[in-house]
């Protein structure tokens, strides 16, 4: 008795809903500390994203409201702006990606509807710039809160720069020096070839099937 519209099934609705409520509360707490992200999210009001994870099987619906808050739902039977299907690894790749459009084209995700809403939502979270100063000042007072926030900001900026620099250097080493990985352009071209091959083999399979059916019909006569 647990069939729900849109083809998803909830085995343990209370647990599922509790998880979503916790994730929603965490996401909105982070958003409240990043005013720029709230503004960007407000612009997405009314757009509903359906994320269908096939492994593990979880479907969730994301919707931004007029206050710039994010609503997460496990059940939604209204019209969906964008539907994305894939494994957890595919979604993780998209979340980490610097170029979500390229990841959508080359990755394993299947997309229905507008990709703009998805890439905009991804950008909101990847560009999340949390301002720790307000909660720290509230908790510790003006002087200590400001000092700690400045230190935290410096540490976060430094670790971001260091991580970016390390990634660039590793990438360069892997592609240019050790030749362990192909350059992105070559990879994209390879993905394109694979895609073409997949389409051609599908078409060939279809033709063979048609020929088989024709042969069967001729044999029956």
């Amino acid at each position: 008795m647990n069939d729900i519209p849109n083809g998803s099934t909830l085995e343990m609705p209370a647990l599922h809903t509790a998880g979503l409520a916790a994730a929603e509360a965490a996401a909105n707490a982070a958003l409240r500390l990043s005013p720029h992200s709230v503004e960007s999210l407000r612009a997405l009001q009314g757009q509903v994203l359906a994320l269908e994870c096939t492994k593990p099987a979880i479907t969730l619906y994301l919707e931004a409201d007029g206050e710039g808050q994010l609503n997460l739902r496990g059940v939604y039977d209204g019209p969906v702006t964008t539907r994305v299907r894939g494994t957890a690894a595919d979604f993780a790749e998209l979340a980490r990606s610097d170029d979500p459009a390229a990841t959508l084209i080359n990755g394993g995700l299947v997309l229905e509807g507008s990709s703009t809403a998805l890439t905009s939502m991804q950008r909101v979270f990847s560009e999340l710039d949390i301002d720790w100063e307000a909660p720290l000042v509230d908790g510790l007072g003006d002087v200590a809160g400001h000092q700690l926030a400045t230190m935290l900001r410096g540490a976060v900026d430094w670790s971001r720069q260091a991580a970016g620099s390390l990634r660039r250097q590793l990438q360069e080493f892997a592609q240019e020096e050790a030749r362990l990985a192909p350059p992105p352009l070559a990879l994209e071209s390879f993905y394109g070839d694979v895609q073409q091959l997949r389409e051609r083999s599908d078409r060939l399979g279809q033709r063979v099937e048609n020929l088989r059916l024709r042969l069967e019909r001729l044999r029956d006569r």
Partner: peptide
């Protein structure tokens, strides 16, 4: 949580 799921439905 029970009420939240009801609202979702």
């Amino acid at each position: 949580i029970w009420k939240r799921f009801t609202i979702e439905l």
